[in-house]
Simulated assay, not measured.
Amino acid sequence: MAGGYPTAVSPAQYGPTQALPSQVAPAQVSPTQQYVNTNVSNTVIPVVHPSHTTTVNKHVNTYKHYFPHTQSVVNECYTQNFICGRPKHHHCCPPGHFGY
């Protein structure tokens, strides 16, 4: 011992590791992602293509992620007019109304 101080350091002694209870942190909220769904109504001819889905149910406990979602609806209406041929009697219309 030089000058009253120890010259060597003993290795640290470790006790058993203790697990503390889990804590829940405040929720972290990501910016809202915007989605647009467009609906178009048409008349179609059905063509059947059969398929099969097998559902496999698995249970896994891990993390909980939350994705709050809102939605809105926009209704659009379009009008189409077709003149298919020349009317037989167009005396109700001014001359040149149909371009001929």
Rank of each mutant, 00 (worst) to 15 (best):
P50K: 06
V29P: 01
A12T: 13
H69D: 09
T43H: 12
A19Y: 10
S41A: 07
P46I: 00
V44S: 12
G15W: 03
K58H: 00
S30N: 13
G99M: 01
N57M: 00
H52R: 07
T38R: 14
N57L: 02
H65F: 06
N57R: 04
A8C: 03
H69F: 07
F82R: 10
H97M: 06
I45T: 15
S51E: 01
P21C: 13
K58P: 00
M1S: 03
A8S: 09
N61H: 05
I45Y: 13
G99Q: 03
P11R: 06
V60E: 11
T70L: 11
Y35K: 06
F67A: 09
K58W: 00
N39R: 11
F82W: 08
N61F: 04
G85A: 11
T7D: 07
N61W: 03
S51H: 03
V56Q: 02
H91V: 11
P95A: 05
H90E: 14
N42D: 13
T62N: 09
P87M: 02
Q34S: 12
Q34W: 05
Y5E: 02
G15Q: 08
N75L: 09
G99V: 01
Q13I: 15
H59Q: 13
I83N: 12
H49Q: 14
V29G: 02
H69P: 01
H97T: 14
V36L: 12
L20W: 03
A27Y: 03
Q71N: 13
A8T: 11
V74W: 08
H91S: 15
I83V: 13
H90R: 07
Q28G: 02
S41F: 04
G96M: 03
V47E: 08
I45E: 14
A8F: 06
V9R: 12
Q23P: 03
H90C: 12
V40S: 12
V29H: 08
Y14A: 14
Y78L: 06
H69C: 08
A25I: 04
Y35H: 10
Q80Y: 14
N61L: 08
N61Q: 09
P87N: 04
G4T: 01
P95H: 05
Y14E: 13
H52V: 04
P21D: 15
H89I: 06
T55E: 05
I83M: 05
V47F: 10
A27E: 02
P16H: 09
Y35S: 13
V36K: 11
V47T: 14
G96Q: 05
M1R: 00
P26H: 06
F98A: 01
K58D: 00
Y5W: 00
P87I: 02
T43R: 10
Y14P: 11
P16N: 10
S10E: 11
H52Y: 05
L20R: 08
Y100M: 01
I45Q: 15
H69A: 14
T79A: 04
Q23K: 09
V36C: 10
P26C: 06
T53M: 04
S41L: 03
N39Q: 13
A19I: 06
P95G: 03
A8E: 10
Y5M: 00
M1H: 01
G99C: 02
I83G: 04
N75F: 06
F98C: 05
G99E: 02
G85D: 11
Q71K: 10
V60F: 09
T17P: 01
Q34F: 08
N42R: 12
V47N: 11
F82V: 14
V44I: 02
